[in-house]
Design a protein around this nucleic acid. Structure first.
Length: 238
DNA sequence: AAGATGCGCAACCGCCAAGTG
DNA sequence: CCACTTGGCGGTTGCGCATCT
């Protein structure tokens, strides 16, 4: 037995939303709030399915959305969160106020993926890709480079520089598990067991230029790094 | 100037998990 | 426990615009 469709598709509009449809949806949500998406289209006088209304509201019409280009800080945050969470766009979006999962997903696929690949980083694993793959990619992407430039030592050095990761993402256990929001003996316990504290793996390594391995977890209050609790990822806080 | 190509983004589709009777 | 509904998510598509040839 298959699922019943979310709406009667033969009576719904598809494709780009018109200004009038937007206005109707916004007006309805302003007066009635976000509620039952299934019944909303009928109540609002829209020939759209509930899913489509929800998507339009969340991704485009919500008043708290931040429009415009992503900042460098947002770029870095997305990359770090992606290295931790993978393609959990909704979780990543939850850490970027005013940004939607769809927006971040699109931005990842169109900008960040390419940015990482051009630096020789596999956007899926966040590890350096094989040299041959990186070179192959560079050749495909950078059509401006001439063969004479490629054979020169300086060009090779440049390519090697570009292949260096922006930041080194340590080997992480990305398994998500529910844990108590606070682990009293996290720092000592984690490090004494030789486990990697992913809070420090970013902060310590990047801010101290590798000179100090001292854990700064005790300095982090509340949700900790990026609002994530330490040791194990507290799924509820994300 | 016109067609080809690439890119960015809004929207759709199908699946899944939670909720409900 | 089961059947079904609903909301939510991630992957994918396709349109419109910009750039290139």
């Amino acid at each position: 037995m298959g699922r019943s469709p979310c709406c009667e598709k033969e009576h719904t509009n598809k494709g780009a939303w018109t200004k009038e449809e937007d206005e109707r949806l916004v007006a309805h949500i302003r007066t009635h709030g976000e509620g039952c998406w299934r019944s909303l289209p009928k109540a609002a006088g829209l020939l759209r399915c509930g899913k489509s209304c929800r998507l339009r509201w969340i991704n485009y019409l919500r008043p708290d959305l931040k429009r415009g280009n992503f900042t460098d800080e947002e770029d870095d945050l997305i990359i770090k969160l992606h290295s931790l969470l993978g393609n959990k766009w909704s979780l990543i979006a939850g850490r970027l106020p005013g940004r939607t999962d769809n927006e971040i997903k699109n931005y990842w696929n169109t900008h960040i993926r390419r940015k990482l690949l051009s630096r020789g980083i596999d956007p899926t694993t966040h590890r350096a890709v094989s040299a041959s793959a990186a070179i192959s990619f560079d050749h495909n992407k950078d059509r401006s480079s001439s063969s004479s430039e490629e054979s020169s030592p300086s060009w090779r050095q440049q390519q090697q520089q570009q292949r260096r990761p922006l930041f080194r993402v340590p080997d992480l256990n990305l398994e998500l598990r529910i844990s108590q929001p606070f682990q009293e003996s996290h720092s000592a316990d984690t490090h004494s067991k030789g486990m990697l504290c992913f809070v420090c793996s970013f902060d310590c390594n990047s801010s101290s230029s590798g000179s100090s391995k001292e854990c700064k977890c005790s300095n982090i209050s509340g949700g900790g790094f990026l609002g994530l609790t330490t040791g194990a990822l507290d799924y509820r806080s994300v």
